[in-house]
Measured scan of single mutants.
Amino acid sequence: SEEELEEFAKEVLRRGITIIVNGIRITEVEIFVKVLREILEKR
């Protein structure tokens, strides 16, 4: 749901943790923004 997305976004921003994806360091915020864009483009 959109509320869950908002909560996830807030949690990500609070933690600001960097994770490893395919050997490249990407912040969770960047991943969230990318996923959010993909979701919005599909609408």
Rank of each mutant, 00 (worst) to 15 (best):
L40A: 04
V21D: 00
T27W: 08
V21W: 15
E11T: 06
E3A: 13
T18L: 14
A9S: 05
F8L: 09
E6P: 03
S1C: 06
R25I: 14
I31G: 06
F8N: 02
K34Y: 03
I26C: 04
E2I: 15
L36H: 00
K42E: 10
L40I: 08
E30P: 04
E6T: 14
V35K: 04
F32V: 05
I17P: 04
K10W: 07
A9I: 15
V12A: 07
E3W: 15
S1I: 12
I17Y: 15
V33Q: 00
L13G: 01
F8Y: 10
E41T: 08
V21L: 13
I31P: 06
V12K: 02
I31N: 07
E30D: 11
A9W: 14
E41R: 05
A9N: 01
L13E: 01
E6G: 03
I39A: 04
E41C: 09
V12W: 10
R15H: 08
L5C: 13
V35D: 00
I20G: 01
I24M: 07
L5A: 01
V29P: 06
V35Q: 02
E30V: 10
E11L: 06
T27K: 05
A9R: 03
E7F: 08
R15L: 14
E30H: 14
L5T: 01
K42P: 04
R43P: 08
A9T: 02
L36K: 00
E7S: 09
E11A: 09
L36R: 00
V29W: 15
N22G: 09
R37M: 10
E4D: 10
G23K: 01
R15T: 11
I19T: 01
I31L: 12
E2D: 14
E7L: 12
I26P: 05
V21Y: 15
V21G: 01
V12Q: 05
S1G: 08
R25W: 08
E28Q: 11
T18Y: 12
T27N: 10
I26R: 02
I26A: 01
E6H: 14
N22V: 08
L40V: 03
R14T: 05
L36M: 06
K10E: 07
E7V: 08
L13P: 01
V29C: 04
V21T: 02
V12T: 06
E2M: 15
E4L: 13
V21N: 02
I26N: 03
E41F: 08
L13C: 00
I24Q: 10
K10P: 03
K34G: 04
I17W: 15
I39N: 02
E2Y: 14
R25P: 14
L5M: 07
V35L: 14
E38L: 11
R14K: 13
A9H: 03
I24R: 04
V29R: 02
E2G: 09
R37I: 11
K42V: 07
T18N: 08
K34L: 07
L13K: 01
E41A: 14
T18K: 13
E7C: 14
G23C: 07
V33K: 03
L13D: 01
G16H: 13
